[in-house]
Write a protein that binds this DNA or RNA. Structure first.
Lengths: 229, 229
DNA sequence: GTCTATATACGGATAGAC
DNA sequence: GTCTATCCGTATATAGAC
């Protein structure tokens, strides 16, 4: 699978995400016309990510957000009940989509090596489509409420376990070398995260997500499978 | 070299760091008695790291800092001219120490493989001794002034280049396999960063820095050297 | 050198008009 | 649904006493 294919396969349009947020938060969103909500949530989310990823969510004032979205503060507060609420929405949405897409990507594969490649490629491609969300989610995790922080940690561990389980399965079937599966999974996560955390560095070097994916897999497979020849 | 040996070899005591900060900032620090300054800077830095790493530097108020250090706001402002100044001090100090220690670690080695191991181990051990500083430096980079941000990026690229140069040298001498040296260096950095960014995860698993180092090197060498046998 | 008190600005959030 | 005006708390930074 290439990135282009991935994009064709799953449409995670910003619009669709906002539609889901609306459905999930019908109660706390005062505005009731779906199309209006979707349109405005899109503006709010994209503006929040843009400002926060430049100077941090705490440093973003509601007045900043109003300027960027061209909405008044009164209007903004029709879509969430507090600034913290906005933060939680973004985090929740990122987690939900990741889990859904990632699980979908591996359910068709039975061979551990293929499964592992699918999971890694999917995660990488997803983080490319939603780079600002992923960056935001990582950098702002510690500003969440205690409850939300626990969810963020659980999500991180969930993904790690997903990789670790594939590795273990591969080892028991003899297609992977015996390696510490949890540590290997941790390193995989670290490599995946580097792509979206240092996105601008890689952009400057004209490195495509496919090139990064290829390199990452080559690096990993040298360790868990051994030399090709 | 083990972590215990590293600790013995270089003493990066908090005190010594604060003494250096004092010397470099004589002009902007109003208090003139060296011992007083060193003692208080130590309290200020450690409190800043403690609070900021929990809830972010922006969210830390000067009143928070006063409570934690048991100093009044008036006293605090004798040691720096603004909150931003305090941030810059911490960043600058982290960069300086890293560069110094890292360069020192590789100057004695001539064999590329040994040099690479030394650089990786040193970086890992240093980030262990100064974990709060490294975490802070990474997470708060985007809150710096434009000028300071450029310095932070330059520092990141400097370290990466240091690794890339060792890799290139090893390749030209035939002791490393031909791999993309820049990308490999990026991945090395990502793995090193994961250790101090997810320190609490690894602590919960009772993984020591030496175990992580061993694993990291094993992983890397499978790629750039090939199987041991 | 350190303290308390305060100047001044800006933050999040809401009320009520349209 | 959206806007403007405003409440009220808290932020950084400093002045001046001790």
């Amino acid at each position: 699978m290439t990135y282009a294919e991935f994009q064709r396969q799953i449409k995670i349009s910003r619009q669709q995400i906002c539609r889901e947020v609306f459905v999930e938060n019908r109660d706390s969103i005062r505005v009731k016309k779906e199309n209006t909500v979707v349109k405005n949530l899109e503006r709010i989310f994209s503006a929040t990510l843009k400002i926060s990823n430049k100077k941090g969510f705490q440093a973003m004032s509601m007045r900043d957000l109003g300027r960027e979205t061209k909405m008044s503060m009164g209007a903004l507060y029709s879509y969430f009940s507090s600034k913290e609420d906005l933060l939680a929405m973004l985090q929740h949405q990122r987690r939900t989509i990741t889990r859904r897409i990632l699980e979908g990507s591996i359910e068709d594969e039975s061979d551990p090596a293929a499964k592992l490649r699918a999971a890694i490629l999917t995660h990488l491609y997803l983080s490319e489509v939603m780079q600002p969300w992923f960056y935001f989610s990582y950098m702002e995790a510690k500003n969440l409420s205690k409850r939300e922080q626990e969810l963020a940690v659980a999500s991180e561990l969930y993904t790690e376990k997903l990789f670790a389980d594939i590795l273990k399965q591969g080892q028991s079937r003899g297609c992977f070398l015996p390696r510490d599966s949890q540590l290997t999974a941790s390193i995989i996560k670290a490599m995946l995260q580097d792509w979206y955390l240092k996105r601008s560095k890689y952009r400057k070097r004209n490195l495509s997500v496919d090139q990064y994916a290829k390199f990452l897999l080559q690096f990993l497979e040298a360790f868990i499978i051994g030399p090709k020849d």
